[in-house]
Design a protein around this nucleic acid. Structure first.
Lengths: 223, 223
DNA sequence: AAGACCATGAACATCCTATTGATTGAAGAC
DNA sequence: GTCTTCAATCAATAGGATGTTCATGGTCTT
């Protein structure tokens, strides 16, 4: 599961990020609405967690803008106030659910899953968190990669990497974005970890290794 | 026996939770209907205890929705009012039994057992409270683990652990989640109790010990 | 052909997990 | 009330898996 968290308070953001990562999910964090909107255009997410109170443009505006761009990713709004007005306003601009702060962590997780399920259409429980491309299946719930029916062991970083790659099918991802998403670092552009891991993944994908294309001067693309 | 308790009043929830745990059952708690519905899709329960008065969607709606999803888990409804109307309405949306608050704890237990018995009486006997994976059978009603026909003694924690593991077959569970579910604690991430218990379980499972896979950097997975 | 960019293997450091034994705590027997 | 017993927890360690860097050689572009 790929999640975009738009939240300016670093303490909250860090707390949420940590917890969601423990669930095995990949979390991207944006400190304000503009950044969030920019990231959305580069990657597809399963759920967007959106704080209502943001510096610059408000959470509501973010929601409105992304909907205007025909982005239908489910949005879970966070707000400090438990006011019905805000809730209604949030839902009106296109949020899908709402959670008042402070919240219980389990509830956050449950709601994210509920949202995701609701949007992907429940009934087909099996398709949950599964990315498939021909004989290549990554089940993010089980954290298992299957290559032509054979289970392949992946390390934690490899799992996160293939997760964002497959979630961003047919989109080029820059090394910086991958670094930020998987390694959670903003600096240190002198490392080549991404390259190394892409190499390892390609090898583990066997016949499907070629699906990860190098976009020279830009990054990598899956699919 | 795995029980899902959907109840918003924390005092009641805590009271019930404690009591059912004392029976040796594993209790999962959801504070509202949405959360409850979400949890149901991740795990199979033997009985669902559902409060009628809930914030957000009502208990009746919860029941209706889960039945619409072809979930046939027996539901015991709790309500503050002893009104026939409510009872009828509850049964109409698919509840299996009904208990007015305040209730006697023994009665609650008796009804849960009755429900469970009734449901396992006709229909799919195997799927209720019994988890099976080849020669490995855990009967949560009898609290008995059988390995290739030989009964193996388990401690309370070991039972709860294998119970959630088998109920979450093929899903990776983080230590945090296991801790929360079996030990009921949110903090203290510096402990390694989970590791220790996983180790003990593996040993007791004998030839099936390998079914508990370590997902390095993430947690454990059964199946 | 030169420069930039990328792939890969190997070496090393680090982190994670399994396991063991000791300690604590609770329940029941006497 | 004390003792016994066993479950539950803690703490320490070793071993292995993973993460990271670096150096080298390959490939693409202009």
């Amino acid at each position: 599961m790929n999640i975009l968290l738009i939240e300016d308070e670093l303490r909250v953001a860090d707390f949420v990020r940590r917890g969601l990562k423990a669930e095995g999910w990949v979390v991207e964090h944006a400190g304000d609405g503009e950044t969030g909107l920019a990231i959305m255009q580069d990657r597809d997410f399963d759920v967007i967690i959106l704080d209502l109170m943001l510096p610059g443009i408000s959470g509501q505006q973010v929601c409105q803008k992304m909907r205007a761009r025909a982005n239908t990713t489910p949005v879970l709004m966070l707000t400090a106030l438990d006011s019905t007005d805000e809730r209604v306003a949030g839902l009106r601009v296109g949020a899908d659910d709402y959670l008042p702060k402070p919240f219980d962590f389990d509830e956050l997780i449950a709601r994210i899953q509920a949202l995701h399920r609701r949007m992907t259409g429940y009934g087909n429980e099996d398709s949950n968190g599964k990315y498939q491309h021909h004989g290549l299946i990554y089940d993010s719930a089980a954290m298992v990669l299957t290559v032509d029916g054979i289970v392949v062991d992946l390390s934690a970083k490899e799992r996160e990497l293939i997760s964002i790659l497959m979630a961003s099918k047919n989109k080029a991802l820059s090394r910086e974005r991958i670094l930020n998403s998987v390694w959670g670092t903003h600096e240190d552009p002198m490392t080549n970890v991404v390259d190394v891991y892409i190499g390892r993944l390609r090898k583990k994908l066997g016949p499907y290794g070629g699906l990860i294309t190098t976009v020279r001067g830009a990054g990598y693309r899956f699919g």
